[in-house]
Simulated scan of single mutants.
Amino acid sequence: MLIYKVGERINSGLKLNTNENIVLNNKNLYFFLNIFKKYVNKINIYPDSNNFILKYIIKKNFKIKLNNIFICNGSDEGLGFLFLLFKNNIFKIPKFTYPFYNIYCNYNKMFKKKIKFKNIINFSNIIFPIPNSPTNEFILKKKILNNINKNKFIIIDEAYCDFYGTKYLNYISLNNNLIIIKTLSKSYSAANIRIGIIFSNEEIIKKLEKIKNSFNSYTINSLSSYLAIEILKNNDNYIINLIKVNYFLITMYNFFKKKFNTFYNYSNFLFIKTNIDFYFFFKKKKIYFRKFIYNKKYYFRITIPKIKYFNIVKKEFFKWS
């Protein structure tokens, strides 16, 4: 059985291998303490299985109807539900993309086809991220819109979409099977609370609710839900954080592009192609990157760090080079 290999967990050193957003959503400790204080007397009761208040805030933020919203315990759980829902179909997934797509197909014993990212929109029953992770490939919006219809499903993973701006929520309708999956882990700097959101037509959302309630009705705890509500309400801080991450990204990209084949990513990471000794050199220095092998070549994903940590990377880089 295939399993997903998470970024190496470390107790010391510089951890740049798991795409956690370096900018905190809210540094105000009282913000968190007030939530704990307000809801600690509810810890003995089950959370709201429908997440109504959080759904209402999502409805308001994303300007979409309540019956088009499904909340899950992280977008990975949402992906798991979608693969269960469509397990009798032949999934088409990009050849080089987020590894969980292939793992879910394997776990559910599903037939799948791996397609070059630039061609996947020409097939039926597809899933792909926009932009593709980790390669930052895009599909023209016009091509996607021309292929949205009722006869096939299109799942767009928008984990990183907030870093580049193009979104597809407005095109969800009962006349098509467009499905959008989002997360609060990346642009919203809230990976620890595990909140994912699926947007689709009412029929698909109802089916997802049935799947969820067939094994666990309480996938979101109250504290995570309340934190998510406050995070989504704090839109000014969210925009400022996107600007900060983009600044750090440009700074890092301008350094590495002179040294390696470096892909500019609309995200919170860089993707570079170089030799394996680069990876092991930095690992010995307790600086951890994410390693990928594709067509017998090595690629490395580096989470965008704050400037003070980037200066550490630069210092060690000059020793390596």
Rank of each mutant, 00 (worst) to 15 (best):
I148S: 07
F81C: 06
I198W: 01
S12D: 09
T303G: 06
E203C: 05
L29W: 06
P47L: 09
N26C: 15
I243G: 03
L249K: 15
E209Y: 12
I144H: 05
Y288I: 12
D157Q: 07
I204S: 01
K113M: 12
Y46R: 14
N136M: 03
K59F: 10
Y46Q: 12
K118V: 10
F83N: 01
I197D: 00
K112E: 06
K150L: 14
F280N: 13
C105H: 04
I93L: 09
N261I: 10
F52M: 14
A159G: 09
K87L: 10
L33A: 08
Y253F: 15
S49W: 05
L82F: 12
F100N: 07
R290W: 02
S75P: 01
I193D: 00
N221L: 03
T274H: 11
K152G: 02
I93V: 13
Y4P: 02
K306S: 13
D277K: 14
Y98L: 09
N108R: 11
I139K: 01
F271T: 08
F280I: 04
N21H: 13
I220L: 07
N67H: 14
N102M: 10
F100E: 04
F263A: 00
N149Q: 07
Y264A: 10
I139W: 00
I127T: 05
Y294V: 11
V6A: 12
T274E: 09
L169G: 03
F310P: 00
N44G: 07
P134M: 05
K257N: 13
K297F: 06
N21W: 02
K182A: 01
S217Q: 14
I154E: 03
K308M: 08
K306M: 15
T274G: 08
Y104H: 09
N147W: 03
M110F: 08
N61F: 14
T251S: 12
K5N: 15
K285Q: 09
L66W: 10
D157C: 06
D157G: 04
N235E: 15
I172M: 08
K150M: 11
P305D: 10
K59L: 10
K259C: 11
N67Y: 14
L270S: 04
T274S: 13
D48I: 03
I307R: 09
K285L: 05
I156G: 03
Y168W: 10
W320E: 08
F278Y: 04
I35A: 06
K212H: 04
I229R: 05
C161A: 15
Y39V: 04
K212T: 02
K141W: 01
K37H: 08
A228K: 00
K118D: 09
K112W: 07
F300I: 07
I10G: 11
Y30N: 15
P134W: 02
N147V: 07
N275C: 07
N102S: 13
I139A: 01
S12T: 11
M1T: 14
N26V: 07
K308P: 01
I179Y: 00
N192D: 09
K315P: 02
Y226D: 02
I239C: 10
F269R: 01
S225R: 00
K152S: 15
N132I: 03
I154Q: 02
N192T: 06
K141L: 02
L140D: 13
C72L: 09
L232M: 05
P47R: 12
